[in-house]
Amino acid sequence: MTNDLLSLDNVTVRFGGVAALDKVSFTVRGGQVAALIGPNGAGKTTAFNAISRLVRPAEGRIHFDGKDLLRLDAAALSGLGIARTFQNLALWPGMTVLENVMVGGHARGRVGFVTSLLGRPARREDGELRARAYAMLDWFGVSDVAHRECKGLPFGTLKRVELARALISDPTLLLLDEPAGGLAHGDVRELGELLLRLRDERDMTLLLVEHHMQFVMGISDYVVALDFGRNLVAGTPAELRDSPELVEAYLGTPA
């Protein structure tokens, strides 16, 4: 138990009468790249939404770093060191790319409602955040659009912007919903290298939902497979590669 960073314990989420998650349990250890896989509708994104407090589980418990996440609200997670990206991007179209990234650093900011009325504290605080956000965009190779609004930028660019938005808060746990979705082949490899570097160099723990099987198996330390909202199998990529349950879930039972 010493190194368990995130644990789901019998988590059930119901939408109306349908159980999107049915007593799902798994554990992500600190310093791992973990992946949630499964066919469409298996409950992967619902599990993400339960962790990031966007849906309320009917039963079960979710712990992060010893804290009961279900007692906190979505906005508190960023301050605890959890950041996430979304399958269909969570960005703000009317704000510039740079501002989008800066919103990711919101939880670390100190300027409150009263101090925001004065100019100086905000200017001082934003100076550093703006510079860090720009450096992050530069690193992702998208600083040329830093001052453009997100509206109308290509999907691949926005994916990087969103990753920068998540990373600016310097999270301990990074949740990535289909990070490779919509990326070109070369970009997928580059993304894999980036994620491993985050794990190794920044001591970050990653949990991803991903359909790109080669990508998942290539970078994950631990893989959890879901099917119809239930735990199917879990283990290292090597253990899962030939798992008959997994083959069955994806391809169906042989006739």
Binding site: L54, A74, A90, L91, G94, M95, V103, A107, S169
Partner: peptide
Amino acid sequence: HAVRDAPLSAAAAGV
């Protein structure tokens, strides 16, 4: 601004 453009995303980002 984040609340204006996408409130759920804003919450997920810590607002």
